[in-house]
Design a protein around this nucleic acid. Sequence first.
DNA 1: CTGGGATTGCGAACGGTTTTCAGTATGATG
DNA 2: CATCATACTGAAAACCGTTCGCAATCCCAG
Lengths: 148, 148
Amino acid sequence: MTSRLEALCMEKGLKMTGQRRVISQVLSEADDHPDVEEVHRRAAQIDPRISIATVYRTMRLLEDAQVIERVDLGDGRARYEEATADHHHHLIDTRTGRIIEFASPELEAMKERIARELGYKIVGHRLEIYGVPLDEADDDARDEEKRP
Amino acid sequence: MTSRLEALCMEKGLKMTGQRRVISQVLSEADDHPDVEEVHRRAAQIDPRISIATVYRTMRLLEDAQVIERVDLGDGRARYEEATADHHHHLIDTRTGRIIEFASPELEAMKERIARELGYKIVGHRLEIYGVPLDEADDDARDEEKRP
DNA sequence: CTGGGATTGCGAACGGTTTTCAGTATGATG
DNA sequence: CATCATACTGAAAACCGTTCGCAATCCCAG
Ligand SMILES: [Mn+2]
Ligand SMILES: [Mn+2]
Ligand SMILES: [Zn+2]
Ligand SMILES: [Zn+2]
């Protein structure tokens, strides 16, 4: 069956090759934020003769076509997720690497207001929060108390 | 004369070499967000035999010592600025590359609240806004009207 | 002054990404 | 359904910012 992303690609008039079909499927089934190597790993499980170069090329193609979005989480590599109607940001658990998505209309509005006050119209923005679970953060505080 | 950053380095007990003095001076005099190559270019004007490897090493040293801060503006390389008491973010003019600094306690508070609601304590965060001047943005809008 | 650990310059190595190029597959056309 | 121009692919090389290994040099506590 054709995946969500494959359908989207056809709508956009992209030439559908076997490789693109496989990569589209992988990305449609993903509910995380895989990097290129991870996409390649998953794609290779479906068709082992897909090269990493093709994955790189396809990710760029899909990004330019606005089918997927690049996510920069501060580790050296690009991560990706399916493009969605609803905009969101990421909170990264620095202990586990777990990624929590969140959206905040108030925050978006505030950001918009700040730009306007500076005389600018926003064309893009980036926000990530790095954090540790509140209970484990307590542990940290206790640790520091013991070593002043 | 010893630069602000050189004094700071000595306070922190870092061994002061000629190269570190020059790089400290360059960074003290900078009021922008230079990348490593730019710092090297400026340092080489003072002492042409400073190598880029030493600049890389020194930037990391100063960053670890919290004397400077790394700024990630989304172009592939690391940029730096003197560490200041007051935290701020950057609005990048995508037309000119100009960087405007701004701070917003409300925004920081909101971000803090969002993390708390998700059960997290913030240990770091990143926010950049990319924009175009409001008047030029008007031009864009007009352009699009003419080509619907 | 001096000795020895820290620092430097150079070039090689690195990791993620892009490009080159010759061979292959796609899908529009007849 | 066969043909064919064209776009795409795999493999390897190039790229780019950054780090590393090593021998030579420098700092500074004694
Ligand atoms: Mn996401
Ligand atoms: Mn700044
Ligand atoms: Zn947002
Ligand atoms: Zn902030």
